[in-house]
Amino acid sequence: MKKLIIATRGSKLALWQSEFVKAELEKAHPGLEVELSVMMTKGDKILDTPLAKIGGKGLFTKELEEAMLRGEAHIAVHSLKDVPMEFPKGLKLGVITKREDVRDAMLSEKYGCLEELPQGAVVGTTSLRRRMQLLSLRPDLVIKNLRGNVNTRIRKLKEGEFDAIILATAGINRLGLASEVRYFSPISKEHIIPASGQAALGIEIVDDAEVEDLVSVLNDADAIVETMVERDFVTLLEGGCQVPIGVNAQVFGDFLHVKAIIGLPDGSEMISEAMSGTRADFVTLGKALAQKVIDKGAKELLERAEKIALSEIF
């Protein structure tokens, strides 16, 4: 193969991710031409409605997948946390890249950390996972929905619509936007557990041996172990973006630790659990942790969470 085409969204973060993969592939395979095919997805067009109400994060991948199935592109680069657990026939998850900083971060023009936010401060996020954990820490906060790309969200913060907003640290680091606001403060995983797959890139590919061989150089062994545990956990819980789920696995040499939290969007009821094992346990650890929270009533709690989210929040 002499030419590889990447289907990508047109947002600054999506383009950064695709350009990064393009450069890495061209470096690994001298003589290979990599081209970007930029397209608009439904998730990019509908900016006034929360994702959970219009179909979830798959809205950012559907058009890219259709282009690949039509033979117009070979791969698509996504933030792994946005990648659905199942793929259309003919496509597969070919690569999981090395992770950036997995933590969420608070951005503010006035306050340096969550503890400094005054009573009743307005915080922007559309993530039910973040909402749940923020309100469990600070029930007094007013959480308001925040859509748009990273730059749009920062603009809304600077225009005074919010006292603070919560974004993924990885996206801010990749775009070099930390200096755009007065305070950029990553939040400890002890306070807010990240989303499944956060800070890794997932490269979706056509189910073709040559394409898979070309892109496999970008796989990261630790990231594969960690994110497979996280994705297994979410899959067994049957949890999409309409429910609040935080799960994070981390490799420490041959040791593997995973912790998770699920609950209601207002943080009033939550189930949190953790498990440890060896690196070799990654094929079972996520499922085992999911079963542990299911035995505590997790599925029933998530059903209530989804109803609350769709009827009261969105």
Rank of each mutant, 00 (worst) to 15 (best):
R153H: 06
V293I: 07
L59A: 15
L135R: 12
G90N: 11
E190P: 00
E109M: 09
I5H: 02
K292A: 08
P30Q: 09
A288R: 14
R99I: 15
K12V: 02
D266E: 07
F87P: 01
V211Y: 03
G148L: 04
K53C: 15
F87G: 01
M270D: 04
G239K: 09
S37P: 00
L59I: 15
I313P: 01
D254G: 08
E303G: 03
A23G: 07
L289T: 07
R99Q: 14
M106V: 05
T284R: 12
V225Y: 01
E180F: 15
G253L: 07
A305Y: 02
I192N: 03
L15A: 04
V21C: 05
Y183G: 00
E63P: 09
V217W: 00
V251I: 01
H74C: 00
K287P: 01
L302I: 10
E72K: 14
A200E: 14
F184N: 14
L175D: 01
E159C: 08
M106L: 05
G31P: 00
I165Y: 01
L51S: 09
P186E: 10
A76T: 15
F20M: 13
Q242T: 14
K2N: 12
D207M: 02
E204R: 12
L117T: 13
P265S: 09
M106H: 02
V21E: 09
I205H: 00
I143M: 06
F282S: 08
L167D: 13
I187C: 03
V225P: 01
H74I: 04
D163G: 08
A14Y: 00
I6L: 14
L25P: 00
D254E: 15
V225R: 01
L80E: 11
V21L: 06
I313L: 06
P30F: 09
L285M: 10
I245M: 04
D232C: 13
G90V: 15
T284D: 13
M228D: 11
G286Q: 11
L137H: 05
R174E: 11
V123C: 04
I261L: 07
A280F: 12
G31V: 08
R174Q: 12
E72H: 02
L237H: 05
G253C: 03
L256P: 03
S18D: 02
P88F: 06
A274W: 03
F20P: 05
K57N: 13
I313H: 07
E35G: 04
V83A: 11
